[in-house]
């Protein structure tokens, strides 16, 4: 079929296509292709060899980092979702509409404060002679070593993810049909049963989307594990930085990046399947 070319329509359609193909799809595809390139004398040369893949995937440290990153991101997702849920629940059902809107406004503010600065603040607060330890020292506790431990990393992830997860959870919980909840109560279900059999299933999609975003953010973040977690053992993102910045080993860093992307795609895909699965 031959149609008259609609210049008007194409003028609006093409900027995005051209820009994203050139500067979004292009870089990602190129990154996949450089995993087959070689580095000779600190210069990347075009080739088609499996060397980088073999080099990275046969190394213990790569798989250690892989497992550790997966573990940290999962831990962060579980902890963040669990900490967020009571707050989102309260914001959805226990406060007025106006309070809820203000709360969401305040939860947006952190997105526009530098994450680096917030991490630095935690660094100062949590240091062994820092604010937190002097405060709890007053009541005779501590000092606790929090920096350079997993706890430090998770606190960083929480700072990063908690506002977003609460927003997503609250938006989905606030949309749960109140009549359903009332019906459950009228039929004699206690609050725990109502929560588990009515509220959570109705808000499932939002809860899972919140968790997925938390996973993606924690999985890719390098600031918390580096500055609060002490970077030992390294996560995959730290591995990418180290490999890229030292010795121009971009192809090997690209291998790590491709592994990260595939893992994320699998996780996101599984989560979406779970979110939209029809209840039996």
């Amino acid at each position: 079929m031959i149609k008259k070319v609609d210049t008007y329509a194409l003028t609006w359609r093409f900027p995005l296509i051209i820009w994203q193909l050139l500067f979004f799809v292009g870089p990602l595809v190129f990154m996949i292709s450089i995993t087959f390139f070689l580095v000779k004398n600190y210069r990347m040369t075009e080739a088609f060899e499996m060397k980088n893949w073999i080099k990275m995937l046969t190394r213990g440290y790569f798989w250690d980092a892989y497992a550790y990153t997966l573990w940290l991101a999962t831990l962060s997702t579980v902890i963040t979702s669990c900490i967020a849920f009571p707050a989102s629940y309260a914001l959805s059902f226990k406060v007025s509409e106006t309070t809820r809107r203000w709360a969401i406004f305040f939860l947006i503010i952190p997105f526009f404060t530098s994450y680096l600065v917030r991490t630095f603040s935690w660094y100062v607060v949590l240091a062994e002679s820092g604010v937190f330890n002097s405060l709890i020292g007053e009541i005779g506790l501590g000092p606790y070593k929090i920096l350079n431990t997993q706890v430090g990393t998770i606190i960083g992830y929480l700072t990063f993810c908690l506002p977003l997860v609460i927003i997503l959870q609250t938006l989905s919980l606030a949309n749960v049909d109140r009549n359903l909840i009332e019906a459950a109560y009228n039929l004699g279900a206690g609050w725990a049963r109502t929560l588990l059999t009515v509220i959570v299933p109705s808000a499932k999609v939002g809860l899972i989307i919140g968790a997925v975003f938390c996973f993606i953010l924690s999985y890719g973040d390098f600031v918390s594990p580096y500055y609060l977690g002490g970077s030992k053992p390294p996560t995959l993102s730290i591995l990418i930085i180290d490999t890229t910045k030292s010795g121009q080993q971009w192809p090997r860093a690209a291998v790590v990046a491709v592994m990260m992307m595939s893992t994320l795609m699998i996780v996101a895909f599984a989560a979406i399947l779970a979110a939209y699965r029809k209840p039996r």
């Binding site: 359609r13 995005l16 296509i17 994203q20 193909l21 500067f23 979004f24 799809v25 292009g26 870089p27 990602l28 190129f30 990154m31 450089i34 993606i216 999985y219 890719g220 973040d221 390098f222 993102s237 990418i240 930085i241 890229t244 971009w250 860093a253 690209a254 990046a257 990260m260 992307m261 994320l264 996101a268």
Partner: peptide, 27 residues
């Protein structure tokens, strides 16, 4: 596909975008 192209960038971890962009721009 068009909308996916428009909306996907924020779901890719920044560190991966960073490496991909670095390689692409130097090319």
């Amino acid at each position: 596909a068009y909308l996916a192209l428009a909306l996907l960038p924020p779901t890719i971890p920044l560190i991966i975008m960073a490496l991909a962009m670095l390689a692409w721009f130097s090319k």
